[in-house]
Design a protein around this nucleic acid. Structure first.
Length: 478
RNA sequence: GGCGAGUUGGCGGAGUGGUUACGCAGCGGAUUGCAAAUCCGUGUACACGAGUUCGAUUCUCGUACUCGCCUCCA
């Protein structure tokens, strides 16, 4: 069996992954708060852990791996959105969840085995909160229930912080009902217009962190294998999750391996609305970047390094995928033809960049079946993401098609007359307006759009006019 | 202030105590009317200083710089 090594945030080292039960490998990944379209940063953990999911299924068998990713559908941002728009919370969360699934599906992400919604596990959260109180790790005060961070010795060990240092930093919400400023909310009161549930501590709603503890316990039991998410979640979210669960269920309970992906930047800068480089996955897709290209770009950088989204990378990725897809077209890979070199890279703490290099080797050697089977482990070159190769978003008008036909005939004629000077001028001019004309191996010219997704082409009339101008100049020259 | 990560050839980006990453671009050649595509060939890079070592880009320490988290955030 392939030996998988993973970097564990908890131990700050890479180690051999040994599942608790190889027949039931369990992975829990923090999913989105559903109030808006997923931005491109949200996509990183989805793609990273989707790739890990594929590897685990490859190694342990499809039926022996379970993957859960939650939807946080109770949150003040959602409440705010509801208040602003006058829509119901359920309406907003339903719609956003579907968006998320659609957008991530477009990136080739498999759907997890479980996609629990927080609001469907309130009972379990209330139960766990009560358990924490009775075990002396939490206390009720003014309608709130708070976790007492000083009651749990291991608090801070996951993210490498000490309570004293953090209090010194003094960036915590101070509240009169807190015994310690670092104490965090398990349950809080709701007023009339906020979502809420009856509880032993009054009408209220859960704090953010308790949902993952309660849901992973319900789905996976007190202990499971891998917990993943973005590095920004390490503190406070994961620290608090772990404190709750380990306090409640025992020190060695909860996740055995903690994995965190690094953050994403755009053209070298932190993504932010003020810089104007903040965009959703949907926007990227609508701009014409195929989901597979986006996925390839993400996988080109190791998940524990900051990743920069750039147009250059996207166009490089597209060129590579075009080549590879041409190579594997019509190839039926044998199910287990994935190449050891690729598997070995992925098994080494998900070295996707190394795996891609190994795929390049296969492509260079012309090993199409191996390439296709190996790429499938990274969720690439499958039929489900291949549509973009045929896509031709630009609609051609009859007038444009006719003009291109004219150009084609003229070019052939010029070459037949061996009037290469004029033929080359025509070609250069066409290049200038985004049309390429290339003579193939059979000596037949082919006209193509250099960038079929170029927005300027949407207006065919402009292109027709430009072609007319070129034709006029060429005719004058003849 | 606290915690952490990074600095690799023109660009992107892996990895390794001594041997070619890989991709793109570039350069040379084949091919072509010229191109494009394709094929062949080509690059000795690892922030700086010190230490460990027979030998360090790779380990240790320090310096500089960059970045992230500590507040909702993947």
């Amino acid at each position: 069996m392939t030996e998988i090594k993973l970097y564990n945030t908890k131990t700050r080292s890479k180690g051999v992954f040994t599942p608790i039960d190889a027949n039931n490998v369990r992975m829990y990944v923090c999913g989105p708060t559903v109030y808006d379209r997923a931005h491109i940063g949200n996509a990183r953990p989805v793609i990273v852990f989707d790739t890990l999911y594929r590897l685990l299924r490859h190694v342990y068998g499809v039926d022996h791996v379970k993957y859960a990713r939650n939807f946080t559908d109770v949150d003040d941002k959602i409440n705010q959105r509801a208040a602003q728009t006058g829509r119901s919370i359920r309406d907003i969360t339903d719609e956003t969840i579907q968006w998320f699934l659609d957008d991530m599906g477009a990136l080739g992400a498999l759907e997890p085995d479980y996609a629990p919604r927080a609001t469907e596990y309130i009972t379990q959260m209330i139960e766990m909160t009560g358990e924490l109180i009775s075990k002396g790790f939490a206390y009720a005060a003014e309608g709130h229930v708070l976790f007492d961070v000083t009651s749990y010795d291991g608090y801070g060990s996951l993210s490498g912080r000490s309570i004293d240092d953090m209090i010194a930093g003094a960036r915590v919400e101070v509240a009169p009902y807190k015994r310690n400023p670092m104490d965090f909310v398990l349950w809080k009161p709701s007023t009339g217009d906020q979502p809420g549930w009856e509880s032993p501590w009054g009408y209220g709603r859960p704090g953010w962190h308790i949902e993952c503890s309660a849901m992973s316990r319900e789905l996976f039991g007190d202990t499971f294998d891998i917990h993943g998410g973005g590095l920004d979640l390490a503190f406070p979210h994961h620290e608090n999750e772990r404190a709750q669960s380990c306090a409640c269920c025992g020190e060695d309970s909860f996740a055995q391996v903690w994995m965190h992906n690094e953050m994403l930047q755009v053209e070298g800068k932190k993504m932010s609305k003020s810089l104007g480089n903040f965009f959703s996955v949907r926007e990227l897709l609508d701009q014409g970047y195929p989901g597979e290209v986006i996925r390839f770009v993400y996988l080109s950088t190791h998940y524990r390094k900051p990743m920069d989204w750039t147009e250059k990378k996207a166009s490089d990725a597209e060129a590579t995928l075009r080549k590879w897809r041409a190579l594997v077209e019509g190839i039926e890979p044998s199910p287990n033809a994935a190449v050891p070199a690729v598997i070995a890279c992925l098994a080494d703490d998900l070295n996707t960049a190394g795996a891609i290099a190994a795929l390049h080797d296969l492509a260079k050697a012309g090993k199409a079946a191996e390439l296709k089977a190996s790429a499938a482990l990274l969720g690439l070159l499958g039929d489900e993401l291949g549509g973009w190769m045929q896509d031709f978003p630009m609609q051609q008008s009859d007038a444009l098609t006719g003009k291109i036909g004219d150009l084609y005939l003229i070019y052939i004629e010029l070459r037949a007359q061996r009037n290469f000077v004029l033929a080359d001028i025509l070609r250069d001019e066409l290049n200038g307006i985004g049309l390429s004309i290339v003579v193939n191996q059979e000596n037949v010219p082919e006209i193509a759009f250099k960038d079929p997704r170029n927005r300027e082409f949407v207006d065919n009339q402009i292109l027709v006019r430009k072609i007319d101008e070129i034709l006029a100049r060429v005719n004058n020259g003849s």
